[in-house]
Every structure is written in structure tokens, then in C-alpha cells.
Computed example of a mutant assay.
Amino acid sequence: MQTRELETEIKELLISSLALEDLGPEDIDPAQPLFVEGLGLDSIDALELGLALQKRYGVTMSADAQEVRQHFASVQALAKFVAAQRTL
């Protein structure tokens, strides 16, 4: 799967799993931060998104909080993480 396709899928997953109905995939910059500034998501959103990613792509997150923060930094970072997990 192409990176852009995966980024678009992840944007759609973000919108549906976090009920961000006022946004479309085109409204989310793949490089913008997901937490605090950027989309302004919080820790509950992170849990919901993590579960949605696990269901959709079968990826698992490590217990290392720093590593998880890096994966959840942006849509681009999530796409890289999902792509890497798929090749394992």
C-alpha cells in the first residue's frame, strides 16, 4: 500500500473513531501534531485511536511511553509505524 493511501486511511480512522465529524481527511495535515497543538487530541483520544489501529491493522503498541509518543506524533508517524508493523 502506498504511504499516501495509508495516511488517508489513518485520517479516516481518526475521524470515525474519535467522532471528528466536522473534519474531512483533506483537513488534516499529515505532518501536523495530533496532540496538544495541531488536532489537540488528549490521552483518552490516544487510547481510542490505539484500539482502532489495533482492530483495523492488527498493530500492537509497546509499553514504552516514549516510543508510543513518537508513533502518535502525527499521521505520517502513524503511517510509518503501521507500515513497519505490517512487514514484520
Rank of each mutant, 00 (worst) to 15 (best):
M1V: 00
T3H: 02
T3S: 03
R4M: 01
E5R: 14
E7D: 02
E7L: 04
E9I: 07
I10L: 14
I10Q: 08
I10M: 09
K11F: 00
A19P: 02
L20R: 14
L20Q: 12
L20G: 11
L20D: 14
L20H: 11
D22L: 12
L23A: 12
G24F: 05
G24Q: 15
P25F: 09
E26G: 12
D27N: 15
I28V: 10
I28S: 10
D29N: 15
P30W: 13
A31D: 14
A31Q: 10
A31L: 08
Q32K: 06
P33I: 03
P33S: 12
L34H: 08
F35R: 07
E37V: 09
E37F: 14
G38L: 12
G38P: 13
L39C: 07
L39Y: 12
S43L: 07
I44M: 15
I44C: 06
D45N: 15
D45T: 08
L47M: 12
L49T: 06
L51P: 01
L51F: 04
Q54I: 00
K55Y: 08
K55M: 08
R56P: 04
Y57G: 01
V59Y: 00
T60D: 02
T60Y: 09
M61R: 04
M61G: 02
M61E: 07
M61Q: 08
S62P: 11
S62Y: 02
A63V: 05
A63W: 08
A63R: 10
A65I: 09
Q66Y: 05
Q66N: 06
E67G: 00
E67D: 01
R69Q: 06
R69W: 02
H71K: 13
A73V: 02
S74F: 03
V75G: 02
V75M: 01
V75W: 05
Q76N: 07
L78T: 01
L78Y: 00
A79K: 03
A79C: 07
K80S: 10
F81V: 02
F81W: 11
V82R: 05
R86H: 04
R86F: 01
T87F: 02
T87Q: 14
T87C: 06
